[in-house]
């Protein structure tokens, strides 16, 4: 039987959750025996070349590109996991939710104390740039998400236990200390 295939991505996140994946330390050698990686920042495969079994999503959706990537993951992965607070509830990027986008952009590019010389008073408007959304959306409000691993970042032991349980089919028993929202 071929090995299960994992894809990962970071949407509106800080890559901390991916760092937490790497926190499994030497177990990464066991991981390579267990699974194969496809599209992921870890192996730098940029587009799906195979259908995947597990998609791990870090970060919520703050712009149109995030939505596009998330929908691609839903299309190509049998199981999607929201990894970390940003994927689950928007996280720190969602601190802007409740504040109108216009107000945020003006603060960032026109009126903020750290704004440099923006003499033409331009808000980023290149058509190559993804559109910013009205607010930051948790992933499960855009596509169906199958599992959630909370934490900021989730503990490496939690990620390891969840992935191994999913791949082997063993029951997942999570100790109290492992599930934290911070």
């Amino acid at each position: 039987m071929s090995k299960p295939i994992i894809a990962t991505t970071s949407l509106a996140g800080c890559f901390g959750c991916h760092m937490a994946i790497l926190d499994i330390d030497a177990r990464i050698l066991q991981l390579i025996d267990l699974v194969e990686f496809n599209k992921s920042p870890i192996d730098d495969i940029k587009t799906f070349t195979k259908e995947c079994d597990i998609g791990i999503i870090e970060g919520g959706c703050c712009n149109s590109e995030n939505i596009h990537v998330l929908k691609e993951f839903r299309k190509h992965c049998k199981i999607l996991i929201s990894l970390g607070e940003c994927a689950i509830m928007g996280g720190l990027p969602a601190l802007r939710n409740g504040i109108p986008v216009k107000e945020c952009l003006e603060e960032a590019y026109l009126n903020g104390p750290t704004v440099g010389r923006n003499t033409e008073r331009i808000l980023p408007n290149d058509e190559e740039l993804p559109m910013i959304l009205d607010k930051v959306y948790p992933c499960h409000e855009i596509v169906k998400i199958d599992y959630y691993l909370p934490g900021c970042p989730p503990k490496a032991d939690l990620i390891w236990a969840a992935v191994v349980a999913l791949v082997t089919g063993d029951e997942l028993n999570i100790p109290y200390e492992l599930v934290k929202f911070d």
Binding site: I88, C152, V179, K180, D182
Partner: peptide
Amino acid sequence: NHFCPACEKSGNCDLQALGYKYQMMVP
């Protein structure tokens, strides 16, 4: 707006602790 990662009360918060107790993964 409960942003646990940025909250000074995180770890000492009763609401968060109940989230842990009842294994809230996502609302």
